[in-house]
Nucleic acid binder design. Structure first.
Lengths: 344, 344
DNA sequence: GACGTTTTTGGGAACGTTTGCACACTTTTT
DNA sequence: AAAAAGTGTGCAAACGTTCCCAAAAACGTC
């Protein structure tokens, strides 16, 4: 039970033209007379003709689709990035295929290769927290698949990248904690594999240094799975608390919410006594208790910029040799002291 | 700059066979001798042959892709449904294309027609809150496009549907409010167009009736745009408060969080005095202040069931005449009184 | 050894497009 | 008047598959 639509052949037959003429008329080529064009267009409209994108893809050897790899769509940051991607992609005639890694390297590789075999024209990817080996991406890239990285980017990969100003975001958040009187500031962060982890750590350290606070490695906890498992978070919190932090700077969306959750679950009595500042794009932060100061990334814009770069690569006629790394500014949203946040 | 891969033709030439033989060998047809099969398979493996899905789609007139239409992926309920969908789809060899309506009917129609022209094999859809006219879906369905509705379903459309037990979910939530002593229970809900709105209203009314509480229409507020605009929500809250509700039952994910937000923003002094019970699949409810009782839908499972039904339609050899409406149970998660929720 | 049967293989059309090339016709140029 | 240039159209190949139909090869059977 497949549904049939009219094809170029049908139109040609009905109008007594050749398929080439019809094809050209539909694509508004200069060779075709205005008269014929009108005729074809009118008839196509009448029978509600839709070009078969599959046939077109086969012929043109491109699919007008771009692949997206993120760890999770149920993540405020990534879903906002995706919205940004779509806003550009659809305008430019591309559709998007989204895949989730759930922070697993294996899944990431599987998904990318699946997408590649589905003949996507290009790939937008934020690496999973497990990922260390990206030779499979290099191979695809070498074979000609355009790739743009965003958010979690590899170091030595000559292509376009779009990231937030992670250093500054981390610096601002840490400084904010310091300025509100905190002195023992812990740092809960993602896997060390990730670029964002390294950059944000540096920002954290720089803020400490500026205020002459000693950096203590034992106050930094890494979560290899990016907080995908609550046990991982609870363990990290448990290891952190003996050092009696009065503030925590947290380095990613999922970790931030996960950490507050863990704190509330395992140590409700002190959950409100520790000031928290963290990266998150949740639009519900205002509801959270304990409340927190958040670093918001320009997620939507990041998606847009990445997509524009990718499409420029896809549609480039000549080899590209100059690559950009766009850095977008984050925004610090300070905690509001409302009824629910009296540090009771 | 397109990247070339080896094709069936290349293999045939290299091995001195015909393309048909190679094709059959790869698909493990009975006609081909074991010997030849081994030869072909080995060589295919060696050159890392990947069948071109576009060519295959063109020939077989199907794309092995299914379309998904939701209002927003940045919505806990929908992103969980999508995870459920993917878990089944990928296993069965389909990939998914996700589109968002942002609760706009126009966008919905546009997206569906775009997907249809992209030759998806089937469609999974939750209607937008604006949608009233679904003749465009009937047309596509009549032309042979398999469609399965989930969550927000039309009434008279003979196809498979998957929904939550909305009546019971609403009943339970309302009863919970009543049992905790509330008597003036408002109901904030979605557009009247939606099936979920009607079903949940009935559950709300039934709970009131059971406890002999009069149903007052002025305590029910509809949000035409499903809470996509904060102004809409603030207006609804503003109209509700003069009736001095001591409890509110809220009928959807976005509205629930939006309403608490609006309440906190416009009337922080009473935000903690009103008990709230609402549909939401947020996994962050435990962090919310004021806290709330939530009705959780089996979102992941809903996605799985819907996908199984859809694939069964796609792969059916004969016309289907019997359609099911699967109803999945919701779960009531009672508010916990923790430090942050002392109704201060 | 001639003839069926079965097994294995190949030829080629088809799916719906796009596009290089050739052709026919008109118009302009010399 | 012939040649050149311009205009509009059609033919046919190609993209990478699948699959119908025939052909060839291998094997029995009488």
């Amino acid at each position: 039970m497949r549904f049939e639509t009219s094809t170029i052949k049908d139109i040609a037959k009905a109008l007594g033209l050749s398929t080439s003429t019809v094809s050209r008329a539909l694509r508004d080529r200069y060779e075709i007379s205005e008269e014929t064009k009108k005729l074809v267009l009118a008839y196509a409209e009448k029978v509600n003709y839709r070009a078969n994108p599959i046939a077109r893809s086969l012929k043109e050897r491109r699919s007008y689709s771009i692949g997206i790899i993120v760890s999770e769509i149920a993540n405020n940051f990534f879903s906002q990035v995706i919205n940004g991607i779509e806003s550009i992609a659809y305008d430019r005639g591309y559709h998007v295929i989204i895949s989730q890694t759930h922070e697993s390297h294996k899944q990431e590789k599987l998904n990318v290769e699946h997408l590649a075999s589905r003949s996507i024209d290009g790939l937008l990817i934020a690496l999973s927290s497990e990922t260390q080996d990206i030779t499979y991406l290099r191979d695809l890239y070498a074979k000609g698949l355009p790739i743009v990285f965003f958010d979690r980017v590899p170091e030595d990969f000559a292509t376009h990248k779009v990231i937030a100003n992670n250093f500054k975001g981390a610096f601002d958040a840490t400084e904010h904690l310091i300025l509100s009187g905190k002195r023992t500031i812990a740092h809960l962060t993602n896997s060390e594999n990730l670029s964002i982890t390294r950059e944000r750590l540096k920002g954290y350290q720089a803020a400490l240094a500026k205020y002459h606070i000693e950096f203590k490695p034992e106050l930094v906890k890494y979560c290899q799975h990016g907080g995908m498992h609550s046990a991982e978070l609870e363990q990290a919190v448990k290891e952190l608390l003996p050092h009696k932090p009065d503030g925590i700077f947290i380095s990613s969306d999922r970790l931030t919410t996960g950490c507050i959750m863990a704190l509330k679950k395992t140590n409700p009595e002190i959950a409100h006594k520790i000031a928290i500042a963290g990266f998150t794009n949740s639009n519900l932060v205002e509801l959270f208790s304990p409340s927190l100061t958040s670093v918001k990334q320009p997620a939507f814009e990041m998606g847009q910029v990445a997509t524009e770069l990718l499409i420029s690569m896809i549609e480039a006629k000549r080899e590209i040799t100059e690559f950009e790394t766009k850095i977008l500014d984050t925004e610090l949203v300070r905690m509001q002291k409302t009824l629910g946040n009296r540090f009771l």
